[in-house]
């Protein structure tokens, strides 16, 4: 059981959310400025938290849904935009809402 040789980790399959050490960010500065959350951000956060407390969906289901977003979209969406998309995905998977219901509601709105 030799320790993994020091190959470039990029050679092995890596999920796009699994960012530890990823070389393309090595020289990217961190935006250390504060960014206030929007009303949208807080609403999404609250919906997730209520669904978690009511055992409608777990944090790991939220994460799975976020990780399932295609890479290009993942990096384009804001943090809470990823969340609402994952919440919708999980509510459909769990059968809490049906696709028809959601589509009708979107058209109404």
């Amino acid at each position: 059981m030799p320790e993994k040789p020091s190959t470039e980790p990029e050679e092995l399959p890596r999920a796009h959310h699994d960012l530890g050490g990823v070389a393309k960010y090595a020289c990217q500065p961190v935006d250390t400025e504060p960014h206030a959350l929007t009303d949208f951000d807080k609403q999404v956060d609250a919906v997730r938290s209520i669904l978690g407390a009511k055992k409608v969906m777990s944090v790991d289901e939220l994460r799975r849904g976020i990780e399932a977003i295609p890479e290009e979209t993942y990096h384009r969406l804001s943090y809470y935009q990823r969340w609402i998309r994952s919440i919708a995905d999980n509510l459909l998977r769990r059968g809490v809402v049906s696709e028809e219901e959601l589509r009708a509601e979107l058209e109404r709105g």
């Binding site: 320790e3 993994k4 799975r64």
Partner: peptide, 26 residues
Amino acid sequence: VQVRSDWPEARGPAHIRTPHYLRGRR
């Protein structure tokens, strides 16, 4: 200990909390 050198994400939908950079590491 050694972290398993396993890559379940290559086999289909998976949710793994063992970071990629630690697989196979002591």
